[in-house]
Amino acid sequence: MAKGVLLVNLGSPDSPTPKDVKPYLDEFLMDERVIDAPKWLRTLLVRGIILRTRPKKSASAYAKIWWDEGSPLIVISERFSDKVQKQVKIPMALGMRYGSMSIKKALGELSKKGVDEVLLVPLYPHYAMSSYETVVVKTMEEQQAHFPKMKLTTLPAFYKSPEYIKVLSESIADGLKGFEYDHILFSYHGIPERHIRKSDPTKFHCKIDGSCCYINSVAHHTCYRHQCYDTTELVKSYLKLDENKISSSFQSRLAGDPWLKPYTDYEFERLAKEGKKRLAVITPAFVSDCLETLEEIAMEGKEQFTEAGGTDYKHIPCLNDSDAWVGLMAKWINEWEASDVLPV
């Protein structure tokens, strides 16, 4: 069989305009793994309420971070893919879960090159039904519908791979150079608390209070909250950080439901008021900088922190297309190509 690799990231509208943002948001929010309500209710919420006002607001946010080359997430993902391709022998393609750079198109590119065995790489370190899982399910649907002879192998969530923690930690250390911080905030993307319970295969392990994280369980393989806190602990250990100077939080929530806490925007205010005047923020749920990191954290976060009394604020970039991250992904792909070995 001829092997190939499919990298998949979140996606982006084609331009920072309400006209292009609206269909992108429609596809994203109508995903049953993002808003996991019955279809009739999801349709009412998304198309009857959210899409009446959200596209204009989101377009304005995208416009703040848009590059001359296009969407930062797309541009970074393309640069990353191109660099990895130079270090591997087998064909690669890049697809997005939402938007015009579809998974179907990417699988088609590989098929045209004679590929019939694909390593699917969801570009998410952690497992969540609204990120990792929806990529896997959508890819399987497209493969079965259009490329039935193709074989799929999926790279597991790699958040605790020692090699990955090394690359992530050293990238953070580089970002911290020259910055005298009082505190480091690990801000992860938020998800509804019910997603944690839905992803629990045991249906009883997860309590979302921290107590269950220290009980070894199969539930940890699909528990986003556990994996996020685990990432913070692994980085803390690698960099020998003072546990009194680090904490974790969750950003990007929707009103109306309890989401994972503590909320990042509340933490900006709390930390500043507690005298943490110099704050460094990292976003380990993302491997590529995007709207949620460049606008919500780097811009809005700085404003929220300084308004609450903070004085110095630094957003540390994601891994993006750094040489170390490119090299690690190429290593994983080459190991799989040679002997079907997966890193985690």
Rank of each mutant, 00 (worst) to 15 (best):
M1E: 06
L6P: 01
L7P: 01
V8K: 02
V8W: 04
L10R: 10
L10W: 06
L10Y: 14
P13D: 10
T17C: 14
K19N: 12
K22F: 10
Y24M: 05
L25P: 01
F28W: 08
L29R: 13
E32C: 09
V34M: 07
L45Q: 06
L45D: 01
L51V: 15
R54N: 08
K64Q: 13
P72Y: 06
P72G: 07
E78I: 10
E78P: 06
K86P: 01
K89G: 13
I90Q: 12
P91F: 12
L94S: 08
S102G: 15
K105I: 12
K113S: 11
K113V: 09
A128G: 10
Y132P: 08
E133F: 07
M140A: 11
F147V: 04
K149V: 07
L152C: 03
Y159T: 02
E163C: 08
K166A: 11
S169Y: 11
A173V: 05
G175Q: 06
L176Q: 02
F179W: 04
Y181R: 09
D182I: 06
L185C: 12
P192W: 15
H195S: 09
K207G: 02
D209P: 11
Y214K: 11
Y214P: 03
I215L: 11
N216C: 04
N216K: 10
S217F: 06
V218M: 05
Y224T: 01
Y224W: 01
R225K: 15
L234I: 04
S237R: 15
L239Y: 10
S249F: 09
F250K: 05
Q251R: 07
R253I: 07
P258V: 04
L260E: 04
Y266H: 12
E269G: 01
E269F: 09
E269K: 14
E274C: 12
K277T: 09
R278C: 09
L279T: 00
P284H: 15
A285E: 00
S288R: 03
C290V: 03
L294I: 06
E296S: 14
I297M: 14
K302M: 14
E303A: 15
Q304S: 10
T306R: 15
D312N: 11
Y313R: 03
K314V: 04
H315R: 15
I316Y: 06
N320T: 14
K331V: 02
I333K: 00
I333C: 03
A338M: 05
S339P: 01
L342K: 00
P343R: 08
V344I: 09
